[in-house]
Computed example of a mutant assay.
Amino acid sequence: MSTFRVYGMTECKALQLARASTPPKPGESVSEYEERVLERFNVIMESKRKVPLSAPFDAPQYAKQFIEIAKRSGRARDLRIMFPKKVQVMKRNKPVTQTVWQEYTQ
């Protein structure tokens, strides 16, 4: 059984990442902090970065429903359904199995 996830970026996730990567400075006012968070938020939304947005789904139709809800809830970009795939790669001249996330196409 495959596991499917939605990757991309939404306003909600970008704001969460912006707050996590922008610690408040000593003596900084709330409005100054919020302004810095907003600047970081805009950088994240304009970047190409994609992150997992959903919990794992058993079937792609549930991931499609998640995408529909995410699009209605605010700005979103690059929403894609992905699934894990095992591939063989060479590390230190030895074959190893590695999991990569590949886009699901119907």
Rank of each mutant, 00 (worst) to 15 (best):
T3L: 14
T97V: 13
A14I: 02
A18L: 15
A76Q: 01
Y33M: 06
N42K: 09
E68S: 11
E68G: 07
V89F: 08
S2W: 04
W101C: 12
P95A: 10
G74D: 00
P60R: 01
A14L: 00
Q102D: 11
E68W: 08
M90E: 15
S73I: 12
F4V: 00
A63L: 01
A76G: 02
E39Q: 09
K64R: 10
V87A: 05
F4Q: 00
R49V: 06
V100M: 09
Q61G: 12
M90Y: 13
W101P: 06
E34Y: 05
I69A: 09
A63W: 01
Y62I: 05
L38F: 13
S21M: 13
K85V: 13
P56C: 07
V37H: 08
C12F: 15
R92H: 12
P84N: 14
L17M: 12
P84M: 11
N42G: 05
V51F: 10
T10M: 04
V43S: 15
A55H: 05
E28D: 07
N42C: 07
E11H: 07
P23K: 03
A59E: 10
Q88C: 11
A63C: 04
R36H: 06
K91W: 10
A55V: 11
R5K: 11
F83P: 04
F83W: 04
G27I: 03
C12N: 12
Q98W: 10
R49H: 06
V96R: 13
K50E: 15
R72V: 03
Q88R: 15
P52W: 13
R36D: 06
R92A: 14
